[in-house]
Amino acid sequence: MRFDHRHLLGIEPLRPDEITTILDLAEQYVRFNRGRDKHANALAGLTQINMFFENSTRTQASFELAGKRLGADVMNMSMQASSVKKGETLIDTALTLNAMHPDLLVVRHPHSGAVDLLAQKVNCAVLNAGDGRHEHPTQALLDALTIRRAKGRLHRLTIAICGDIAHSRVARSNLLLLHKMENRIRLIGPETLMPTGIEDFGAEVFADMREGLKGADVVMMLRLQKERMDGGFIPSEREYYHRFGLDAEKLSHAAPDAIVMHPGPMNRGVEIDGTLADDINRSVIQDQVEMGVAVRMAAMDLLARNLRARPSEVMA
């Protein structure tokens, strides 16, 4: 078992065997979480601070629960209401926090690269909970675990990612991870929501959803953010749903046993048909939430092991 990283800032620096290491450990935590006694002590004595510079309910709750189940002291900081509003720079905030000696810092920030910048300034382990349009590594890992459990493998699958690719960190992290694991990736969306040059990352691009879904084993839908809906990037919700909303008819072009995923929160009737999202035979959306806690426990566990193995800089 090898995982040689101080932080989890993205999927990009991870090797395939490291990804497998996280997923294997997460698998154990899935079983653990289903048990009656959900208290372990892998993070006992450690302090975990969740710093969310951008609103989040589910990711923050998932990280909080993961930390608490592993015995960490968890603190949530909603940075929108804090000193950032008073004009403190990100680096000053980092230095202030660092002086409080946290061990694990979970950070979400609206700007790409902000979490990396913060990681350079602190002594603890930093987990990226989403930075701008850049990466959201734990989401990609929980998606990977969900796929592996549903399909029995995480390689040589045809995976269609559909929606607002351009503004999605989920799409980027998933693209990187699934590409490293040697899957065939298709990106589906209107041209206005497709980043330029994305083909060079080893993905096929489709503007026609039915064509893009043909034979896909996994259909991953992305959330379309409200502010993109009216005329700027797409003409209207109804035209978007007509072209790119997943319904039973469009899904029929995918493989007969294709699974449907969505990182949440869903816009029913915009990117996905409500009935389909609730179809337990196709939708693994609830599984994704469950895997989220397990994957975050595994990631923090591994980072904590590395932290404990290192001679303590904090004490110096």
Partner: peptide, 15 residues
């Protein structure tokens, strides 16, 4: 090409 020919939001080109 844009709603109301206002030059702000594209029309439903597909529909």
């Amino acid at each position: 090409l844009t709603k109301g020919r206002q030059g702000r939001e594209m029309t439903e080109i597909g529909f």
